[in-house]
Design a binder for these strands. Sequence first.
DNA 1: ACCTGAACACCGTTCAAGT
DNA 2: ACCTGAACACCGTTCAAGT
Lengths: 214, 214
Amino acid sequence: MTAVAVTRKPRIAKKRGYHHGDLAQALKQAALRLIDERGLEAFTLREAARAVGVTHPAAYRHFEDKRALLAAIAEEGFVALTGEMTAATDTIRGDVFERVSAIGRSYVRFALERPAEFRVMFGPRLNADGRFTALAEVVAAAFQVLISEIETGQARKVLRDGKPRDLASALWISAHGYASLVLYDKITVRSPARAETYFLELLQPLYDGLRRKR
Amino acid sequence: MTAVAVTRKPRIAKKRGYHHGDLAQALKQAALRLIDERGLEAFTLREAARAVGVTHPAAYRHFEDKRALLAAIAEEGFVALTGEMTAATDTIRGDVFERVSAIGRSYVRFALERPAEFRVMFGPRLNADGRFTALAEVVAAAFQVLISEIETGQARKVLRDGKPRDLASALWISAHGYASLVLYDKITVRSPARAETYFLELLQPLYDGLRRKR
DNA sequence: ACCTGAACACCGTTCAAGT
DNA sequence: ACCTGAACACCGTTCAAGT
């Protein structure tokens, strides 16, 4: 966007020959760092290549194009998110209600701790044309964590009736809406540490509404 | 992103001299059309200028830079959204609960009917550096519609207790989370016509939870 | 198999110059 | 006051050529 005049920093070690490592992985990590520092819109493939000490066309040996690099990051992000949500419930055995709210909390934590990944996962419409089928699959897998939890909650007569997909959507919407509005500067949180508990405070009405009447 | 080889279309009427109209307005409209057609990431200032028949540096007479053009679009978008939300309650006199859910519905409708504006409003972090104070103000004004409605709902003992800001945030989160997940292809709606009622279905637990126990 | 050099068709931004 | 022409420092993508 802005054409800044940068004093050409001489490559520390002028690489000759191959990168001799996992260049694909290195490019993804460089990309995330750059997105963290200057934002998604300012991110360029060329800069990522420079950061790992390789000429920019080398990236095309590992990714079809720029969008494919971002899609790879998004894909890994959804896998990581699924892992976090699953891990969140591991510590909580009994109360399904506690488990469900722990999943919501872990979603929010992921978004705020790894904002660059979150933005890549939800910012650009990478898969508008359905090009990245693997990406669509890991998105579905993440959602499935919510659905399964709702199902066991309903089976134990803790959660209200309704299609599991729909109740799970409500959960996803609440965690995603909160995370998005915070990350995109629309809702202000006093301190990052309070972000998770504030989420539970705000969405208490929803959680109350999800509880089965007794 | 993609460098398409376009056969240079000769300008229909080779404009000489001034645009002789509201160029700023024309650029904003052209921008929205282009974003609608090819997405926010593909949008360029130069193409918008070409579309209205003016050389690209002419845009800088009306906007400081590309971000400022997008910020102007976002600003008008928030004003329009505030108008829609206010209008949504005008038809409903009595039940505060009905009014609150009408606001949510109008938010969702706005997002799905005017996706380009919605994406500009919430997609790029235009105001991350607090550069556009007017934009921040219209965002706050839109939020205020929700807060006011919550306040009267509480005064009439229809809505549960709690800080109006917090209950209003819950509403915003739900409408925004739903709209975002639908617009960014994460939640699928059977038909666009069903999108609004599906929203109410999904968030029924939240609305139930917002109701004051009696 | 993996990377470089060079090229192409674009960008956003600036600025002197034109009317 | 408003716009153009020309220039600058970038992009993403392609491809022949090198090791």
